[in-house]
C-alpha cells in the first residue's frame, strides 16, 4: 500500500488545534494529496484533552491514525504531548510547544503537574524539538496566534510549497488577523529551522 503520513495534533480545548488542523488539511489537499482528518468535538470546548488526527498520502482509508503509527506528534501542551507518546511510531518526530496548562486535579491541588516533561520526551524521542509558541505569537503581535506559529514550525518538516500555506491561511483565517497570523507562521518556520 502506498505510504500514508500521519500527524497527530494534541493539546487542550481552546488552544486553536481545530483551526491549525483545518489549515493543515486544506494545504495538503491543495498539494494534491488524499487527506483525512478527525477529531472529537462536543466536550472539546471545555478545557478537556483534545487531539486531531491528520493523515495524507495517495489514498487514505481510516480517518484515525492506527495506534503506534503517527509519524509526527505535534503537541500544543507538554502534558498532552507526553500523554500521546504511545501513538508515535518508532523513529517518529515530536514538535512540542513549551507550555504547561493545569488540568483540574492539579489546579485544585489534588495532584501535581508532572515535572521535567521536556526532558522525559527528549530522553525517549531523539528527533524532538521544543518551540515557545507564545513568545513567537507575542513577537508576531497577537498572543492568539500561537497555533499558527506552531503550524509554521510544523511546516518546516513538510515538503510543501510556501504559497500553498499562504493560500490556505488566506482562505481560513479571519481577514483582520491574517497579517499577524502570516507573521506568526513565518516566525514559527524560522524557530524550527
Amino acid at each position: 500500500m502506498a505510504k500514508v503520513t500521519n500527524i497527530l495534533l494534541a493539546g487542550v480545548g481552546g488552544q486553536g488545534i481545530l483551526l491549525a488542523s483545518e489549515v493543515l488539511s486544506e494545504v495538503l489537499m491543495l498539494a494534491g494529496y488524499d487527506v483525512k482528518k478527525n477529531e472529537i468535538h462536543g466536550m472539546s470546548q471545555r478545557g478537556g484533552s483534545v487531539s486531531s488526527h491528520v493523515r495524507f498520502g495517495e489514498k487514505v482509508y481510516s480517518p484515525i491514525i492506527p495506534e503506534g503509527e503517527a509519524d509526527m506528534l505535534f503537541g500544543f501542551e507538554l502534558l498532552e504531548t507526553y500523554r500521546n507518546l504511545p501513538f508515535l511510531k518508532k523513529g517518529g518526530q515530536v514538535i512540542v510547544n513549551r507550555l504547561q496548562l493545569m488540568p483540574p486535579s492539579v489546579a485544585t491541588g489534588m495532584e501535581r503537574y508532572p515535572e521535567n516533561l521536556e526532558q522525559l520526551i527528549a530522553d525517549q524521542v531523539s528527533d524532538s524539538q521544543v518551540v515557545d509558541g507564545l513568545e513567537l505569537a507575542i513577537e508576531a503581535g497577537n498572543a492568539r496566534t500561537v497555533n499558527i506559529a506552531l503550524l509554521g514550525a510544523l511546516a518546516n518538516k513538510l515538503d510543501i510549497e510556501q504559497n500553498l500555506w499562504i493560500q490556505a491561511m488566506e482562505k481560513m483565517v479571519p481577514a483582520k488577523f491574517l497579517s499577524q497570523n502570516l507573521k506568526a507562521f513565518e516566525l514559527g518556520r524560522q524557530a524550527a529551522n
Binding site: 472539546s44 470546548q45 507526553y82 507518546l85 504511545p86 501513538f87 518508532k90 517518529g92 503537574y113 508532572p114
Partner: peptide
C-alpha cells in the same frame, strides 16, 4: 496485543472537560 514503541512511565493527571 500491540506494544507501543514509546511509553509514559509516570501516572498522568487526567484532563476531563470542565464547566467554563
Amino acid at each position: 496485543e500491540m506494544v507501543p514503541a514509546y511509553t509514559t512511565e509516570i501516572t498522568l493527571p487526567n484532563r476531563p472537560p470542565n464547566m467554563c
